[in-house]
């Protein structure tokens, strides 16, 4: 479905200088720095996959999305998506994709959401019958009934993002690019957005590529992650594998009745301790979870215990460290 091979892209950036003399100088010639935004990126994505595309700011995520959506032309490399080369057959190609830029809006600010949808229908030349069916489904699943008649400027951020996603799906695209779809949303809206992405992926088989900084998005949506840093591809594979490779530790949080004697359990290390609560970290390959809990219940009167795998944020931080990005 999506095939990228050896994509590279570099930008020429004019050096900005301060000061009057420098400014006068820059009228005549400019110094340029060449920045490699992408270096030899290759991967392929099968139909119906959800892929999390992650990396720190400035790693080249947006550039890749822009190339894949036909906005930018890469310097070298080839990219075939559904048989098209995005930047060559732009108009034909973009009929098949939906793009959500999380920080920008494609809805018209002062008119009801519905009017924006209707205009998009005309832009994408969607037949009326098909449009009606799609829009009804979208309104229902995204719970937009109450907001489609209000102007966009009156919507909350969460409502707006749901409308944005609906807007990008009016023409029934096969591929959906989501550039930070949950940025700035509250927890409830985030969950709603994730749920919807899952639904359209399952029911309509839409291939989803999303970039995000929120690891919970990745955790709940994507089986596969592609990690990019400083323009190079660092990791491509299952989330679980990534977790196995780095996330060997588990943590136990235990609440108990007041106990002033410090807890000591072999094979664990204490992350934090108070007379009511302790957080322990241990390696499940060497110490069994049940053993730790038994030790705990011997030493204190347990009220509540939670066991967690290492959060993915920590893994990513470790990864970044390992690759020195």
């Amino acid at each position: 479905m999506i095939q990228l091979e050896g994509i590279s892209k570099s930008y020429k950036i004019a050096k900005r200088s301060t000061g009057l003399r420098q400014a006068a100088k820059s009228l005549f010639y400019r110094e340029h720095t060449i920045i490699d935004a992408l270096k030899d990126i290759s991967f392929s994505i099968k139909p119906g996959e959800i892929v999390g595309y992650i990396g720190p700011n400035g790693a080249g995520k947006s550039t890749t999305i822009k190339i894949m959506s036909g906005i930018l032309v890469p310097d070298t490399g080839s990219c075939t998506i559904m048989g098209y080369t995005p930047w060559k057959d732009r108009i034909q190609y973009v009929k098949n994709i939906g793009v959500v830029f999380g920080q920008r809006s494609q809805l018209w600010w002062d008119v009801p959401v519905m009017d924006s949808f209707e205009l998009l229908k005309d832009i994408y030349k969607v037949p009326l019958q098909e449009y009606k069916a799609t829009i009804d489904l979208l309104i229902e699943t995204l719970e937009l009934q109450e907001i489609v008649q209000s102007p966009v400027r009156q919507l909350s951020l969460g409502q707006r993002m749901r409308s944005e996603i609906a807007a990008s799906l009016i023409h029934n695209p096969k591929i959906l690019f989501l550039d930070e779809p949950t940025i700035g949303l509250d927890a409830v809206s985030k969950i709603a957005v994730r749920q919807f992405i899952k639904t359209i992926n399952k029911e309509k088989g839409v291939t989803v590529i999303l970039t995000t900084h929120d690891m919970n998005d990745i955790e709940s949506l994507a089986d596969r992650v592609i990690l990019i840093g400083k323009g190079s591809l660092l990791y491509d594979g299952h989330l679980e594998k990534l977790r196995k490779r780095f996330g060997t530790h588990k943590t136990i949080t235990a609440d108990y009745g007041k106990n002033t004697i410090p807890i000591q359990i072999p094979g664990t290390s204490i992350l934090s301790w108070s007379p009511e609560r302790v957080i322990l970290s241990f390696d499940p390959d060497q110490t069994k979870t049940s053993e730790v809990i038994t030790h705990l219940s011997d030493q204190v009167k347990l009220l509540d215990v939670t066991v967690e795998s290492q959060p993915i944020e920590d893994i990513i931080v470790q990864l970044y460290k390992e690759y020195k990005i």
Binding site: K66, S69, G70, I71, F101, I123
Partner: peptide, 18 residues
């Protein structure tokens, strides 16, 4: 400046009309 032009490029119409 606002980056809205990218949006026009991912739509299947000529940039001129948009």
């Amino acid at each position: 400046i606002k980056g809205e032009f990218d949006r026009l490029l991912v739509r299947p119409r000529s940039t001129f009309v948009q």
